[in-house]
Amino acid sequence: MSPQYSGIRGVLAWIDAFAQFTGRWIALLTLLMMLLTCVIVVLRYGFSLGSIALQESVGYLHSAVFLLAMASTLQRDGHVRVDIFYRRFSRAKQAWVNALGSLLFLLPVAGFLLFSSWNYVADAWAVREGSSSAGGLPLVYLLKSLIPLTAVLLALQAIGEVLRGLLVLLQEPQASGEGSSHD
C-alpha cells in the first residue's frame, strides 16, 4: 500500500462512506413509504377515509427516494449499464470507462442539472410553494429542493468514481475502496 496515494484513498473513503450513509437513510424512506401506503389503503377501504396529504406524502417520499438514491446506487455499481463490451474489459479499461464517463458525462450533467434547477427551486422557495390540491402538503418547495441536492450528490459521487478509476490505473491495491462493491 503506497503512502503517496493516501490522500486520494482518504477522499475516496469519505465519499464512499457518505454514499453508504445516505443510502441507508434512503432505505428507511422506502420503508416509511411502504408503511404510509398501507395506512392509506386501510383508511380508504377499511374506514372510507381519505387524506390528500397522506397520498401526497407517498409521492414526496417516492420522489425523494429516486432522486437521493442515484448517487448511492452509482457507488454500489447498481445503475443501469449496457455492458456488452464493458464486462469483457480488463479492470484497467473498466477504470478508464468509469473515470472518463464520470468526467465527460456525469459531471457535466450534474452541473447542468444544478444550474438549470436553481431558479426553478429559488422561485418555489420565494413563494413557499405548496400543493395545488386542497388539503395537500404545503411543502412543494422542499420537494423541488431535492433536484439541486441530487446534482450535488451525483457530482460528489462522480468525483469518487474518477478517483477510484485513478487508483486502479495507478495500480493501487485499495482502489475498490473499503465497503465499496466496485472490484
Rank of each mutant, 00 (worst) to 15 (best):
T30R: 10
I52N: 14
S132E: 12
D77W: 11
A53T: 08
V42F: 10
A27F: 10
S48L: 11
K93I: 00
I40T: 07
T73A: 11
W118I: 00
L35A: 13
S145Q: 08
A110C: 06
F85H: 09
L143C: 03
N119V: 07
A151Y: 02
Y60G: 03
Y141W: 12
G23R: 08
I8E: 13
Y45T: 00
A155Q: 06
R87H: 11
W96R: 15
V41F: 07
L153E: 08
A53H: 12
L49S: 11
L163G: 07
L166V: 02
R88K: 14
P173D: 09
A151T: 10
I15K: 06
I147D: 11
A155S: 12
Q55V: 03
L29I: 00
W25N: 13
A27Q: 09
V121Q: 04
L106M: 06
S90V: 08
Y5H: 12
S133W: 02
R164H: 03
G135D: 00
F115N: 12
L169Y: 08
R24Q: 06
L113D: 11
Y141T: 03
S51M: 01
Y86D: 05
S57N: 13
H62L: 11
V97W: 06
V168W: 04
P138W: 02
M1A: 13
Q171Y: 02
L35V: 14
L156R: 02
L100C: 07
D123Q: 10
V97G: 08
S131N: 06
L35Y: 02
S63C: 09
G23L: 02
A19N: 15
V97S: 13
